[in-house]
Write a protein that binds this DNA or RNA. Structure first.
Lengths: 344, 344
DNA sequence: AAAGGTTATTTAAACGATTACTATGGAGAT
DNA sequence: ATCTCCATAGTAATCGTTTAAATAACCTTT
């Protein structure tokens, strides 16, 4: 009692302390049904007293049960990463799983497989926002790791995809219905799938409502970092409108971060939102609420949860049928798209 | 060759394939000197052919060598987390270590210890931005985990601390020298150490330069999320000035995120930065550059590297002397604090 | 009271690596 | 030729768990 000199406590100590065999301790750890209430209590007491925690490594080595899922993401600053992560965690907690995070740096996500799966660290992987090319596909295939994709698609895997086309459509429809007439969009610089889809949906909406589509009003910034999904790009895009001398009534930004940049540029130019020009973004990231910015919510939290429970399914039954879904976003209407000019 | 049916490849397969004993394979894996060049080549060939990767769990279980460091952080959205992380990674790569990340959710960081250290997952821990209270201290103490604190202090541990007082002082000095006279500050809502220190430094600078300190001009928002380091809080704070009918010439925000909120509120109120009121933040997070916001850089990347190499030291020699440092920040001057009114 | 059927517990064999110890074989010394 | 030494490779114990198989204990049933 006097010296808390901690030398690692193992299952043997616990067993000795409780007066049982180590296998019994293991059984109560794993909630096996074949343990009498009486001994369970004894063992639990010993565990608590010694504050015993089973070593993960030993556990993983001995057991065939999967107990570790990895989530690989190109960057922790991805706007919705934290959202998805929270969803994943909420779900993971329900099962008895551990979770480990890995950022791949977007260039070589196969590293995640090597690092986690081949080396036995993870038994299943959630891949977030990473495109699966042939090489990656081959690696996954040969590893046979249970896998769920979030925000990317591939015919061979389970995936949860955002419906970007619909999101773009909803944006367009919303702006039309609000009575704006000259509609523009700030897209990503590089040709990202997400931006292209949103643009396609947006244009489809305009066509559907017989609005004219003015190509000049579809611009992108020159800054190409993060695929042009940055404040900088949004900022630059606004100045492109300015140098054209031609502004839309309402602008749909490919994501919220751009919208922030755009907002700043508009302010600099002395234009008010929404009085002079309406603005909306995409993602519903935290600060939009308080900027009063209309945006599109992709419900990443829900997706995180769903992806995880799907993963659990695959783990249980590896040959279950593919489950490939696209999730529909919802529009969050706020002040930045109120039409204060026309009274239609 | 026809069926790539992968069933896990172990060190035994490699040994058989290379015609040696497993201990020999292990030796080449661990770069032991007592292996002839000839067999090393054989073994390496077998490893490559079977694309063998030693299982981390088995390795950890068998070896006494530490090979895993954890970095615990209250939130992945902490503005400088990614910066620190990059530094840590750069340094980790040099040694032969793995890294694992953990977000504690700021309430119960002891969970990190339980999850990583007690369970043998990590052999050393970097703790980022988490205050060490008595309870945590006790846990660390009894675990004897090699530990380095970043952005918090404790007499018993190695730490790398930001010099917040100096940062605040530099901010004050900068604004004074720029010729602003009525200086205010937006601090955090809760009494966080960082904000208090920055405020103290700021006031010290004012005193030092014989400026008067008007208490009314030191405000905080009511929103208390994340300790009041949010856009929301910054936004609210500006409206407090407004309702007082009393605005400073220049405002020092406790962090950049607040500054963003403040900027937005000022815009709403029709006030221009820096024409009507100058503004500066703290942290030098990404978007400040492009908002042209003067700020204070804490050089988190460097700190991440230093903390890691320090950790490596402790691992090697657990009884080495404590190394407790505070790192001085640097001021990044930008447009938001140019004095356009007075021509002093 | 013996046989059978549960249920609870223990014994002992994995899991896949590391590593102390032991064995082998040839070079150099005598 | 024998002995020693050293470099290299192999044998086997070990790390802390899980779990299948064996066993013990206790009820029922007859």
């Amino acid at each position: 009692m006097s010296k808390p000199m901690s030398k690692k406590v193992t299952i043997y100590e616990v067993a000795k302390n409780a007066g049982v065999a180590i296998s019994t301790v293991s059984r109560v750890l794993n909630k096996s049904p074949n343990v009498s209430e009486e001994t369970k209590i004894k063992v639990d007491k010993a565990i608590k007293e010694l504050s015993f925690r089973p070593q993960v490594s030993a556990r993983k080595l001995a057991s065939k049960e999967p107990n570790m899922v990895a989530i690989a993401v190109p960057s922790f600053t991805t706007p919705f990463f934290n959202e998805v992560l929270k969803g994943v965690k909420d779900e993971i907690k329900k099962m008895d799983l551990d979770i480990i995070m890995y950022n791949t740096g977007s260039r070589n996500p196969e590293e995640a497989v090597h690092n986690f799966f081949d080396r036995g660290t993870a038994d299943a992987v959630i891949i977030l926002s990473i495109d699966i090319d042939e090489e990656l596909h081959k690696i996954f295939q040969s590893s046979r790791v249970p896998l769920v994709l979030v925000n990317s698609v591939h015919p061979s895997y389970n995936y949860f995809m955002m419906n970007d086309h619909l999101g773009g459509y909803m944006a367009g429809e919303h702006l039309v219905k609000k009575g704006f007439e000259r509609l523009g969009m700030i897209r990503s610089g590089t040709q990202t799938r997400a931006s292209l889809e949103r643009e396609r949906g947006f244009k489809d909406a305009l066509k559907n409502y017989k609005m004219k589509v003015d190509k000049d009003l579809f611009v992108s910034g020159d800054s190409d970092k993060h695929g042009g999904f940055t404040e900088e790009a949004g900022y630059e895009a606004i100045y492109k409108y300015d140098s054209m001398g031609k502004f839309p009534d309402a602008i749909f930004c490919a994501n919220d971060t751009q919208a922030l940049g755009a907002l700043h540029a508009l302010t600099k130019l002395g234009l008010k939102v929404p009085e002079d020009v309406a603005l909306m973004g995409y993602d519903n990231i935290k600060f939009t609420k308080y900027l009063d910015l209309t945006t599109i919510d992709q419900k990443m939290h829900t997706i995180g949860m769903q992806a995880t429970s799907r993963l659990a399914e695959i783990i249980k039954n590896p040959d279950s049928e593919l489950f490939q879904t696209t999730i529909n976003p919802v529009l969050i209407e706020r002040g930045s798209t109120q039409n204060l000019k026309s009274k239609k």
